[in-house]
């Protein structure tokens, strides 16, 4: 048994791969730590993958959610500027083009994941994915 009585990981509620030091495999097989990823890594991986496409998703609004520690982010996705809402924890990191990891509450992200983050703001352009075959 744990002396601290804390069975959950510090990243409870977030996927484990956002934890600083997590090993990420790019589409060409190269391994990088999550904190070392750059915009080009995502762009090149999508090109290599064949079936995935990178979309530019602009943050249109960030609103409080009824869920504790959560926010509702509205994105304008891709060339068609489709409006998509997602509800995420305030510490959930998104990858902003040319800037890197960003979350609504960077202090909390850093505290929980040790991942350095910028503040996600309205107007930021995040990397998102779609399937190429969708027409």
């Amino acid at each position: 048994t744990s002396p601290h009585g804390s069975p959950s990981s510090p990243s409870a509620g977030l996927p484990p791969f956002f934890m600083k030091g997590s090993i990420i495999q790019l589409a060409d097989g190269e391994l990088k730590r999550v904190e070392d990823l750059r915009t080009e890594d995502f762009v090149q991986s999508a090109e290599v993958s064949g079936e995935l496409k990178i979309d530019s998703s602009t943050v249109e609004s960030i609103e409080c959610s009824r869920t504790p520690n959560a926010v509702i982010i509205q994105f304008s996705v891709g060339e068609n500027k489709a409006q998509v809402c997602v509800e995420v924890l305030v510490e959930y990191p998104f990858f902003v083009f040319g800037q890197g990891w960003s979350s609504c509450c960077p202090d909390r992200t850093t505290q929980l994941l040790a991942l350095s983050c910028a503040k996600l703001s309205v107007g930021d352009v995040c990397i998102s994915l779609t399937f190429k075959s969708l027409k």
């Binding site: 484990p16 090993i23 999550v34 890594d41 998509v84 990858f95 995040c126 779609t130």
Partner: peptide, 19 residues
């Protein structure tokens, strides 16, 4: 040590194709 695929890190934000 677990290795995670790059596409796990960024969200799928495909809109629902209703039209």
């Amino acid at each position: 040590v677990p290795v995670f695929p790059w596409h796990s890190l960024v969200p799928f934000l495909a809109p629902t194709q209703s039209d």
